[in-house]
Design a protein around this nucleic acid. Structure first.
Lengths: 219, 219
DNA sequence: TAGATTGTTAATCGATTAACAATC
DNA sequence: TAGATTGTTAATCGATTAACAATC
């Protein structure tokens, strides 16, 4: 469970509920574009393939206004509430370590900026990359990581190095004052317990796909 | 729950357990490199920050040999069993739609090949990209999707287009005989029920990071 | 009022963890 | 044998879903 401390009421929301939020936002934005002003939980549930009650609870958790029986919720207000809740408005600055194909892609990926994250600098050990710019962001040498992080007061680190180097990078990030790590390497990172590690586990996704396919094809 | 049908015994494993497998593999490979031949569940659990019993159950599910009390499991055998189980050996072919920064990165990303997936072709509607090659893979026009998929008998599709185009691409993939979809767009895809959609929800990860940070900094 | 929708309390479900007997 | 580790059965935990009263 994740405890939120807003001005007036403490909001409690499950990890899973939090992860559903971006889907709600995406769908609500589409509705907004199409000029739809009101949405009811059952309709939203149907559109996203979720359970009605689950949606109602999720909305209740973040909505500042109660839903109206027989009517539903105001689309624009929900969008605003969710964006506020997820912090899409206050931009978080991040640094990235590992300027390979994946790292480069993230530096250029607009989807990240849309979620309120700004990658301010990248780091690598490859001298050939150091000093270059990728999508307007400078690449520095790893040796400068700690100094630059402290100077810019960056709190989020993105790891896109090979698995066997991830732990080393992680340790340096922790030393630099990084509080949350987005880890794309398929390795478990050991960290002090107040640091959040969010694993983007592509290998796990591939495993799911591959297993599903295996079942489909052998039956 | 996911039902597996192997030659001899049917293996049942939870979705979560399946997603832990790549972490086991990564750690076991490191051990193998360091010349360690035997691993016990408690040690593996400690290294990955998991519960002992959980690890023991996961290993029991995929291991062909039983673990030996007081000793543990054979590292190499476990690796082989897991790779076999996850299908890292039999290569799955995939096509990718949406040659933006993310799509391009996936086409060049070695991590994917290591998991037994091979992207054989990419598609886009941008005429400027059609006919070009990215990391040795040709980019075709979307209009050719159905024909090429059917001809190559491809079963996995990767979606890296903007959210508002994802459903359209998805529909075409289903029409092409695709059975499993890896979706990087933050949108819910409606599909016939025998199609697996694996969402790579980066926005959700960002939400987790951002929330965690918000809590850390305001307290 | 009748009916759709809301929000809440209780039941269910799946996965994790604890307790324990079996084994080398 | 003693002790560490295995595998299994039972208890716990968190999240989802079902049932139901409240509301417009």
């Amino acid at each position: 469970m994740i405890q939120l401390q807003s001005q007036d009421k403490p909001i409690t929301i499950s990890k899973q509920a939090l992860q559903r939020m971006p889907y709600y936002i995406q769908h609500l934005r589409t509705m907004h574009k199409n000029g739809i002003a009101i949405i009811a939980a059952p309709a939203l549930a149907a559109a996203l393939g979720l359970n009605e009650v689950q949606v109602r609870k999720d909305l209740a958790a973040i909505s500042t206004t109660k839903g109206k029986p027989k009517t539903g919720f105001n689309v624009d207000e929900l969008i605003a509430n969710m964006e506020e809740f997820l912090g899409y408005n206050n931009i978080d600055e991040a640094i990235l370590v590992g300027v390979g194909s994946l790292g480069r892609a993230l530096m250029c990926y607009k989807g990240i900026a849309e979620c309120g994250m700004n990658i301010v600098a990248a780091f690598d050990i490859n001298e050939g990359l150091v000093g270059s710019q990728i999508c307007g962001k400078y690449v520095f040498h790893m040796d400068e990581l700690i100094e630059i992080c402290k100077r810019l007061n960056v709190r989020i680190g993105i790891i896109t190095v090979p698995a066997d180097q991830a732990q080393g990078v992680c340790d340096k990030m922790v030393e630099s004052g990084i509080l949350a790590i987005w880890n794309f390497a398929p390795s478990h990172l050991r960290t002090p317990e107040n640091i959040l590690v969010q694993n983007e586990n592509m290998a796990a996704s591939l495993a799911m796909l591959s297993k599903h396919l295996g079942e489909k094809l052998t039956r």
